[in-house]
């Protein structure tokens, strides 16, 4: 039997793509499958793993620290996302209307998210140090008393959210700016002919048309925010008193400081499921608001 030219072509393509497929399988699929497998086992150091069924999942369901970390993760997510979407949209509108040096303004704006999060963490650790930092010194110039910032259980989450917003709001602004530039001019011309005031144009035209763009920005930030790790690891390590102990920080602590790999794998799978769930929901929302 002779193969047709197209079959031979498909076969060749499959053969050529095989190394990439195998590499992806090894680097992505294997760790995920291994983590799932490990989440059903206990892994004492230096000894063989043992199957424990759903015991690790049951343990986390009964652990107050786990529920605290879910609460911390979601609170941080909601505050940060709200700040970044509203601030980013505002910034994008300003940039869209900027007549002077728009290229320079954009370059300056994107600089925060070019900085590695670890450097951002170290920078704010110094600025916000309650005794030696610049933030309290500035407050003192206005007669305002010092704040504990990252060392206060009440203020740590808003402070971390502000640091993350400082870094990532420009990213959201750039996405929204792209959305603004792609909006159809005809709609604005019609509004202008009807004499619609600019505030009404923003709320009734611009914002509804921007919803798909905002949903895309929200999806991108959701993945990062629910897995929040680096800045907290550098600044508070989950403290004080677990007040900034996100699910990712908690999982890291259990896995790489206490070396309870089975339980840590169950936490990692829970976090993955949570991220997937929220992203899927946002994706549906994005489709619903598409125009």
């Amino acid at each position: 039997m002779q193969l047709s030219a197209s079959s031979r072509h498909r076969g060749a393509l499959a053969l050529l793509s095989m190394p990439a497929v195998l590499f992806t399988a090894m680097m992505v699929v294997f760790p995920i499958l291994y983590t799932i497998w490990l989440s059903f086992r206990t892994a004492p150091l230096g000894h063989a793993t043992q199957f424990v069924g759903l015991a690790n999942y049951s343990q986390l369901a009964h652990a107050p620290q786990f529920w605290n970390s879910i609460k911390v993760s979601l609170t941080l997510y909601v505050i940060s996302l709200a700040l970044q979407l509203t601030g980013g949209t505002y910034l994008a509108v300003l940039l869209f209307q900027a007549k002077r040096m728009p290229a320079i303004l954009r370059s300056v704006l994107i600089s925060p998210f070019m900085v590695p999060p670890v450097v951002v963490g170290m920078m704010f650790l110094v600025i916000l140090d309650p005794s030696l930092g610049a933030a309290n010194w500035v407050l003192s110039l206005f007669g305002i008393g010092p704040s504990a910032w990252l060392a206060s259980p009440e203020w740590v989450i808003p402070t971390v959210a502000l640091i993350d917003t400082w870094q990532w709001m420009p990213f959201v602004a750039l996405i929204v700016l792209g959305g603004l530039q792609s909006l159809p001019p005809s709609v604005y011309e019609a509004a202008k002919i009807d004499g619609a005031p600019s505030r009404l144009v923003f709320w009734r035209i611009t914002l509804p048309l921007l919803l798909p763009t905002l949903a895309t920005a929200a999806i991108l930030r959701t993945v990062d925010l629910l897995r929040f790790f680096d800045i907290i690891y550098v600044t508070t390590q989950g403290g004080p008193l677990n007040a900034s102990d996100t699910l990712n920080i908690y999982g890291f602590h259990i896995g790489f400081e206490l070396f309870q790999f089975g339980y840590a794998s169950a936490l990692a799978m829970t976090l993955t499921a949570m991220v997937f769930g929220v992203v899927l929901a946002l994706n549906r929302l994005r489709k619903a608001v598409d125009w």
Partner: peptide, 20 residues
């Protein structure tokens, strides 16, 4: 010092060395 719950050796040494 304010914020001492985040203090380990690094912050303590800095504070002392700084004369505070």
């Amino acid at each position: 010092p304010l914020g001492v719950v985040n203090y380990s050796f690094y912050q303590i040494s800095s504070l002392y060395r700084d004369g505070r």
